Simulated scan of single mutants.
Amino acid sequence: MVRRLDLEAFSILKLETGFNSIHYFSWLFKRTYGASPQQWRAERCCAAEELTD
């Protein structure tokens, strides 16, 4: 779900996770994964692009 680049973070948040607060979601995500959703997405997308090149 976070890998879908055509969706904005708040759309993912509301439609697919059930969270109503983007701030709480971001805080919990960073606490769980050690990176903000934006950082996590950037790292995964760049790594995936390198694998396909």
Results as ranks from 00 to 15, higher is better:
residue 2 V to H: 14
residue 3 R to W: 02
residue 3 R to V: 14
residue 4 R to G: 02
residue 4 R to V: 09
residue 5 L to Y: 10
residue 6 D to Y: 01
residue 7 L to C: 07
residue 7 L to A: 08
residue 7 L to W: 10
residue 8 E to M: 03
residue 8 E to Q: 08
residue 9 A to E: 13
residue 9 A to T: 07
residue 11 S to W: 02
residue 13 L to F: 10
residue 13 L to T: 05
residue 13 L to A: 01
residue 14 K to L: 15
residue 14 K to P: 00
residue 14 K to G: 12
residue 14 K to T: 11
residue 15 L to A: 04
residue 15 L to E: 15
residue 16 E to G: 04
residue 16 E to P: 03
residue 16 E to T: 01
residue 17 T to N: 05
residue 18 G to H: 03
residue 19 F to D: 00
residue 19 F to N: 00
residue 19 F to G: 00
residue 20 N to H: 13
residue 20 N to T: 07
residue 20 N to A: 14
residue 21 S to M: 13
residue 21 S to N: 13
residue 22 I to Y: 13
residue 22 I to E: 05
residue 23 H to G: 12
residue 23 H to S: 15
residue 23 H to W: 04
residue 25 F to H: 03
residue 26 S to A: 15
residue 26 S to N: 10
residue 27 W to C: 03
residue 27 W to G: 15
residue 28 L to G: 00
residue 29 F to Y: 02
residue 29 F to M: 01
residue 29 F to H: 12
residue 29 F to V: 14
residue 30 K to F: 01
residue 30 K to T: 14
residue 30 K to R: 08
residue 30 K to S: 15
residue 31 R to K: 15
residue 32 T to F: 05
residue 33 Y to V: 15
residue 33 Y to M: 12
residue 33 Y to I: 05
residue 33 Y to E: 06
residue 34 G to R: 09
residue 35 A to K: 10
residue 36 S to K: 06
residue 37 P to A: 00
residue 37 P to W: 01
residue 37 P to F: 00
residue 38 Q to T: 02
residue 38 Q to V: 03
residue 38 Q to Y: 05
residue 39 Q to H: 09
residue 40 W to I: 00
residue 40 W to T: 00
residue 40 W to V: 00
residue 40 W to L: 09
residue 41 R to V: 01
residue 41 R to Q: 14
residue 43 E to S: 12
residue 43 E to R: 04
residue 44 R to E: 11
residue 44 R to V: 06
residue 45 C to A: 03
residue 46 C to V: 14
residue 47 A to Q: 09
residue 47 A to L: 11
residue 48 A to H: 10
residue 48 A to K: 15
residue 48 A to R: 13
residue 48 A to P: 09
residue 49 E to P: 01
residue 50 E to R: 14
residue 51 L to T: 04
residue 52 T to F: 11
residue 52 T to K: 13
residue 52 T to A: 13
residue 52 T to E: 13
